[in-house]
């Protein structure tokens, strides 16, 4: 009962600040920008590029897989940034403004408070990712060639798992920091460090959750799902649960102080 109350309050708050409109739109733009510019690159170069007379420029047209991967990698960079920024104030803002005390003066458990907020944010991001990548897929299908619906759906689901972990990390920093900027900064640093470490040791820690996007890329090239992607998924879920549990405990301890 109280979980759904907080959950609904979160959803309406996201709705009031237009997050349900602007986040999907921004994600859609990230997803279609690269395939579009790659496809029309020769035309763009012709009109603005000052190509010397007689020079012929041969740009290889990217393959279907490459074009689709562009959408994913763009969202993997800028999409992560937006996801972090959107969720950086979920708890920290309420602690700072005092709304938090107001909420917790009612009989609300910390677990419900954290998970309801987390699920609401995850729904927003998952929806945005699904919509934007489907639009990206539509564009790639028109411009470059076909990718099956099954393949794109599976890839989107795994990509959502990756974002699930990122939101978990953001929630963790939310629970003990008051400054939204610091939450965003530390979350992004953590994600970057995780990415760097797992790409350096990618042959050792094959289960690293940040390798999910790499496995998705391979899936587009070969059409075959790597077995390791399941380990990465399990690792991502484990890290998410751990982050949420620690976040709950931290909030509890802070309330006692």
């Amino acid at each position: 009962m109280q979980w759904s109350t907080i959950f609904k309050k979160e959803l309406t708050e996201h709705w009031r600040s237009f997050k349900w409109i602007w986040v999907p739109i921004v994600f859609i733009m990230f997803a279609i920008m690269d395939p579009l510019t790659m496809y029309y690159f020769p035309i763009i170069m012709d009109s603005v590029g000052n190509v010397p007379e007689g020079a012929t420029l041969d740009f290889p047209t990217p393959s279907v897989a490459e074009a689709m991967i562009m959408s994913f990698s763009q969202l993997g960079l800028l999409g992560v940034l937006i996801a972090v920024v959107v969720s950086m104030g979920l708890v920290s803002k309420e602690v700072k403004s005092g709304v938090y005390e107001l909420v917790l003066s009612k009989p609300v458990s910390f677990t419900n408070y954290i998970t309801a907020k987390y699920v609401a944010a995850l729904m927003l991001i998952a929806f945005s990712l699904a919509v934007s990548l489907l639009v990206g897929w539509y564009y790639v299908n028109i411009l470059f060639g076909t990718i099956s619906l099954v393949q794109i759906t599976v890839s989107i689901l795994f990509f959502i798992v990756y974002f699930m972990m990122i939101l978990g990390i953001v929630m963790l920093f939310n629970s003990f920091l008051k400054s939204q900027g610091l939450v965003a900064f530390l979350s992004i640093i953590t994600v970057v460090i995780l990415n760097v470490i797992s790409s350096i040791y990618s042959h050792v820690i094959t289960w690293s959750p940040t390798l999910i996007s790499d496995y998705i890329n391979m899936y587009f090239y070969s059409g075959q799902l790597e077995t390791e992607i399941w380990f990465s998924t399990v690792a991502a879920v484990a890290i998410t649960v751990m982050c949420l549990v620690i976040a709950t405990i931290t909030l509890k301890n802070r309330a006692i102080d």
Partner: peptide, 23 residues
């Protein structure tokens, strides 16, 4: 085709501007 492909982008941008102004 170029116009057909770019039109949705323009529409999305317009929506973005309008909701930002409403907000």
């Amino acid at each position: 085709t170029l116009i057909q492909l770019l039109l949705p982008l323009g529409v999305l941008q317009l929506i973005l501007i309008v909701i930002a102004l409403i907000d």
